[in-house]
């Protein structure tokens, strides 16, 4: 994508009177890091980037910002939030609209067609991070890694993030402003991660998840980063009743992870953020993708495509499958 055009557009958007700020990506503090940027003026807009490292889903900030009580006499700020989205992120915005988590008038969606993002862990393993800023660019058949002035061409297959291999919607499905031409979609790969678990027998799966969930440190970054986990009063924070004890052990961790995955069934748009941020490397995406697949195959429903759709778990069809009922 043309960065000049991106920055120019962003500057125009933030100059608008009805826009409060723009959320995009900027270079992080070192290495391959990219940080979310909250842009309020043209100067800030000049920092924006869009590269294969912009894997994070910024739509989570639409619901993360606290709605604090206003001092008496002060009017609420009703200006719009501008947001840069990739294909997957745009589905989160749509799903938020479906659930009335945000209002369409409250956001300016800037679509960025996405040729596929890089898996940070794979990248850092092959080409260790350095203290200076590194850059990664898309090339015709892969990525160009520029590290300490040294350029390396890498094939797409080598570094592409798992969620992008499986991606079916690289182009934003909802946008007010589209930056650049839509990219050509690719054949989604087979979901080896889910398959690996699926082909185990029931005890094998339990053993597999027991190992994974035992590592959970309950930092709740998976919940917080998720654009669709935005309940004001999360069941995990509840003390009365205490659905999930605060104690960190396998039983509670499993209950927490099942609850989290269940609450995202039919809502998860597969942006893979939960898996990316997990400090314990739990493959949470497998849980979510499995549920998304079930919802798609059994109920013919896909979240985040149509802003007019009914929320999956708050609707039904009389002929929903019931082969599991005794």
């Amino acid at each position: 994508m043309d960065l000049e055009k991106l920055r120019e557009t962003a500057a125009e958007v933030v100059a608008r009177e009805d826009v409060k700020y723009l959320i995009g990506w900027k270079n992080g503090s070192y290495g391959y890091r990219v940080a979310p940027a909250f842009i309020e003026d043209a100067e800030g807009a000049a920092e924006l980037i869009f590269s294969p490292l912009c894997i994070s889903n910024l739509s989570t900030y639409l619901t993360l910002v606290e709605k604090l009580p206003l001092p008496r006499g002060q009017e609420p700020d009703t200006r719009k939030i501008a947001l840069m989205v990739k294909g997957c992120d745009s589905r989160a915005v749509t799903q938020l609209l479906v659930e009335k988590g945000i209002e369409r008038d409250g956001v300016v969606v800037i679509g960025c067609p996405c040729p596929g993002m890089i898996d940070y862990d794979l990248l850092a393993e092959k080409y260790p991070e350095t203290e200076g800023l590194s850059e990664v660019k898309w090339t015709d058949d892969g990525f160009l890694v520029i590290r300490d002035g040294e350029e390396t061409n890498v094939t797409r297959d080598e570094l592409l993030a798992e969620k992008c291999r499986l991606c079916r919607y690289p182009n934003p499905l909802i946008s007010d402003i589209m930056l650049g031409e839509p990219v050509e979609t690719w054949e989604p790969a087979e979901d080896k991660g889910v398959e690996e678990v699926d082909k185990k027998d029931v005890n094998g799966r339990w053993a597999y998840w027991e190992e994974q969930f035992s590592n959970c440190i309950r930092c709740y970054s998976c919940r917080n980063v998720c654009p669709l986990c935005y309940c004001q009063d999360c069941i995990l924070d509840r003390l009365n009743p205490t659905w999930v004890n605060r104690a960190v052990n396998f039983s509670e961790n499993t209950a927490f992870n099942i609850a989290r995955a269940f609450h995202l069934a039919g809502r998860c748009i597969e942006c893979g953020e939960c898996e990316r941020v997990c400090p314990a490397n739990i493959p949470l995406g497998r849980l979510n993708r499995k549920m998304a697949r079930e919802v798609r195959d059994k109920y013919g429903f896909e979240p985040g495509l149509d802003p007019e759709a009914e929320p999956f778990q708050a609707s039904y069809k009389p002929d929903d499958p019931e082969d599991f009922i005794l």
Binding site: I217, C219, V277
Partner: peptide, 25 residues
Amino acid sequence: SASCLGCGTCTFLCPTCHCFDIQDE
């Protein structure tokens, strides 16, 4: 703090962070 997610990664992984909560289960 604008980009903070409010998760506990930084504190749980910090060797000097020592805050705790006491619960009866």
